[in-house]
């Protein structure tokens, strides 16, 4: 096993992407993810890859469209205001079923907002921010090691399902350094017979999202997409349950806020309160069944997130009324405090 190193979340993400076979990166600077393009600009030329600083996020995501359509493993990264600009391209990628990895190290909004980490883009990520009926797979790492592991997975999932996979982190995760064992994935080239590469000895390939003829073509394509998404829902859901076996109360939280919730769980356990943590790792597809089953066994569920209550909607859908759901949300880049969570859970008893 290789030795663990101390690295920043953003740099780990970039390194893991290169190790996962990402050969092309396009991006535009924005805090708090600037270490990703900086790392790529240093490493890609040395390792045979391509780093290009685009003139905007719109250009970057469309460069991704081109590279993906040409068959490459490709990534772009940004933070919240930049993701808003990328939505057009993401919709086109979804329409043309092009695989790629898109990173959002979220910061507070709306608008220019601030640069502190936030989780206020949950809706944008999980509901699709662009036009049309589409989904992206959304992976939410909770620590730096998981940033590495999920980045590798993201590329595999993208190619396997021909989908956009989003890594949804936040400013704190991107800036944080923790020991990490860098993955050494065995990257096998995925055949992409649909990619454009010059129609030598074959019928021409067309990468497109316009579907006008015959009359039901677009409907058929959408039905196909929905079938694909159903399949993904059945196959890629991931979550972590921590100290939930005998729990009376259940905290649901992801990413950075789940770290604080985890600390609160430990503090409460030390005081004899039976509480556990459920942490969705895939935000879409959301681990509905897993959460539903757990919620049946507890007296109350507390959702903790750094937004006004976005994941809360999925939690409510999952719990589906079998127990009461409470909420603690922090706004504009503020963090929940472990003590605060402890107090709330104690008030249940």
């Amino acid at each position: 096993m290789s030795k663990s190193v101390l690295m920043k979340g953003n740099e780990v993400l970039a390194e893991a992407a290169i190790r996962a076979g990402c050969t092309h990166y396009f991006g535009y600077p924005i805090t708090p993810q600037n270490e990703i393009p900086a790392y790529m600009s240093k490493e890609m030329p040395k390792r045979g890859g391509c780093f290009l600083q685009a003139e905007s996020e719109i250009a970057a995501i469309n460069m991704v469209f081109g590279a993906s359509g040409a068959g490459a493993r490709v990534m772009t990264s940004s933070s919240s205001p930049g993701l808003s600009l990328k939505q057009e391209g993401i919709s086109y990628l979804a329409g043309a079923e092009l695989p790629c990895v898109v990173v959002n190290m979220m910061r507070g909004g709306p608008g220019l907002g601030g640069i502190a980490g936030s989780q206020a883009d949950y809706f944008q990520a999980t509901r699709g921010g662009g036009n049309g009926d589409y989904r992206t797979i959304v992976l939410a790492p909770g620590n730096v090691q998981e940033i590495a592991d999920l980045t590798v997975q993201a590329f595999d999932l993208a190619d396997k399902y021909r989908m956009v996979v989003m890594i949804l982190g936040d400013g704190y995760l991107g800036q944080m350094s923790e020991p990490v064992i860098l993955p050494e994935p065995d990257v096998k080239p995925v055949p992409k017979p649909w990619a454009v590469s010059g129609a030598k000895g074959r019928e021409p390939n067309k990468v497109m999202s316009l579907r006008l003829t015959p009359d039901d073509y677009l409907e058929k394509h959408n039905i196909h997409l929905q079938e694909l998404y159903k399949k993904v829902e059945g196959e890629v859901t991931q979550s972590e349950a921590y100290m939930t076996d005998d729990a009376d109360y259940l905290i649901v939280s992801y990413g950075t806020s789940s770290r604080i919730a985890r600390k609160a769980v430990k503090m409460l356990r030390n005081e004899g309160v039976k509480v556990g943590l459920f942490r969705p790792v895939t935000l879409w597809p959301f681990p509905m069944k897993e959460l539903h089953d757990l919620s049946k066994k507890v007296k109350k569920v507390l959702t903790v997130e750094m937004s006004a209550g976005q994941m809360l909607e999925d939690v409510n859908i999952a719990v589906n009324g079998v127990t009461e759901v409470d909420f603690l949300g922090k706004l504009g880049g503020a963090l929940p405090e472990a003590n605060e969570i402890v107090k709330i859970v104690k008030s249940y008893g």
Binding site: S4, L6, T31, P32, I115, G171, Q175, S177
Partner: peptide, 24 residues
């Protein structure tokens, strides 16, 4: 902060480091 983390990590401790950043 990084030096403390690396030193402690090499001696088997768990470590984490978050910097202040940006315009801050």
């Amino acid at each position: 902060g990084k030096l403390l983390c690396i030193a402690a990590m090499r001696e088997g401790k768990h470590v984490s480091h978050i910097p202040s950043y940006g315009a801050e």
